[in-house]
Design a protein around this nucleic acid. Sequence first.
DNA 1: CTTGGCACTCGGGAACACTGAGTGCCAGAC
DNA 2: GTCTGGCACTCAGTGTTCCCGAGTGCCAAG
Lengths: 336, 336
Amino acid sequence: MLDERKLAVLRAVVEDYVSTNEPVGSKALAERHNLGVSPATVRNDMAVLEEQGYITQPHTSAGRVPTDKGYRLFVDRLSQIKPLSGAERRAIETFLAGAVDLDDVVTRTVRLLAQLTRQVAVVQYPSLIRSTVRHVELVPLAERRIMLVLITNTGRVEQRVVDLPDVVEDDQIAHLRAVLNACLDGCRLTRVPDTVADLQERLPEEDRPVASTILSVLLDTLVERHDEKIVFAGAANLAGDFSVGLREVLEALEEQVVLMRLLGEASDSAALTVRIGSENPYSGLHGTSIVAAGYGSGDNELARLGVLGPTRMDYPVTMGAVRAVARYVGQILAGS
Amino acid sequence: MLDERKLAVLRAVVEDYVSTNEPVGSKALAERHNLGVSPATVRNDMAVLEEQGYITQPHTSAGRVPTDKGYRLFVDRLSQIKPLSGAERRAIETFLAGAVDLDDVVTRTVRLLAQLTRQVAVVQYPSLIRSTVRHVELVPLAERRIMLVLITNTGRVEQRVVDLPDVVEDDQIAHLRAVLNACLDGCRLTRVPDTVADLQERLPEEDRPVASTILSVLLDTLVERHDEKIVFAGAANLAGDFSVGLREVLEALEEQVVLMRLLGEASDSAALTVRIGSENPYSGLHGTSIVAAGYGSGDNELARLGVLGPTRMDYPVTMGAVRAVARYVGQILAGS
DNA sequence: CTTGGCACTCGGGAACACTGAGTGCCAGAC
DNA sequence: GTCTGGCACTCAGTGTTCCCGAGTGCCAAG
């Protein structure tokens, strides 16, 4: 259908348009990329490409601009992910290595990614779902009040204040703590509910009321945080670009739910996900593209991160940056 | 200098300009606000106000627009903070009451404030400085590795992984934990360094190496988080307004340091701080105003929150919202 | 299939005039 | 002395027209 040269023309159109942000004409194309043919020939090819829906002209007598379909073809078949330079690699590494806790890792990551790509970066906190319990702590606050702290293997900490039905001795709490940790340590969060139910039956009668209060709060914690936290950075990078509906995009960015869907929709594949313009689930974000990847330690994906920018973005470079950052974050989290 | 009527004219100019976003002329003024004088008289007054620098005209043959100085006078002497409606009050209360932990309180607050004022809201996390230690927890992770968790009376939780120089028994850790809590419980964070130094000398010889490792991490934690965390929301509300340099403002919002100065500069007064246009420390934010207030439980200010919007904002309403939200957040934090 | 030539299209910028809101000033009224 | 109506003046914004040139589509020849 599309011979070699037509593909080359499409690639050239995309590259030129991305770098100049202006519709590209046949003449300029034939000159800048040495295609070895005349402008007239290029015109014919462009006519075909337009007919097939890969490019379009904003108005008669203007150059051509890639369509979403054109970008799609470009990403899938005409381009290669561009690896980062050594310097960039080292910069990432040292920047991320300085993080002190999970919060810090995420914050640094999102800024790094925004700066690297000059676009809006989005990072999801490591999911509770896939992680395991590292420790459960019960801290007495008052006679009938304790604080429940749940620490996961990804360094995430959840805490809740629990009001108890009875006055409880310190050593009873210590005992409960020991039991809880014995049962739950290393347990996948998804399996906690089962384990807890099981545990509750095996407890001695006198511990039941207190334990069940605590355990129900523990379960609440898991459920409530089911919807994950997402942060973004680099909104300023949108400001220069008139082609995107700034207001809509900013609104979308502040809607956790929308962001979640953007990143998560295709979480089955560990590879890079690219969603271009109208492929996007949220109508306010047509005109923008998302490049996302999962990250995690080893083979289990903890969460996702990505970049959002105008459809007219440099895909090879962006994809390279996203992939690299995802890998490094995975390493960092695995190591801590 | 300025008689009663001239002040009324200034007030009218500010109010009209704020609501219409267009330079306001003498005729419209004389009509809409029943000043009881003719447009010509108003013109004379306006000429005086302009001469004194309270208002200005964008170009000859256009209406007048308040200057920063004009807004300042308006805020200081011509307007009253507008209290929220009962419905708004209740909405705030129920919305904030649903928060489950500190993170949630802050997130909800910032969104609430953004929505209420239709501007950009900024909230600082409760400062470590003024809060006290509620509990210190040591969690064994591996033979020579523990996690240090610090819980403050504002519900804030800081955690660090500590690599120990020696293998340590569980009961030694339990002992250390008990000692630490005995010393530090209720201690103001500002006084922790002293207390720790004191403690270190009183420890038995064999505990010294382990303890000093842990304590130095504890001190690090306090120092590192000295620069506080700040979040914002409602950036989308900026998008409609052309009068502000969108890019600059977004950049400023992502600079923690700048935000900190905006909110914090005048933290000595517990009352509302209003900073108008060029009064602003950061040049990218001329053209915007900040309304900020401290919040906290009772008399000690924990941190600050505020709103950032175009200089041309509705000050009475904004100030009312900021004050109300600050109060409610204080209550919530005190109660949990 | 490719190429050069040619007529055609149309967005965008420059030049221009027009309109109307708003001003400043002045002479007269209260 | 202060206010008011009248009047000439200014100028941003808008609409109109015109022109230029980049870029196209088509055709006939190589």
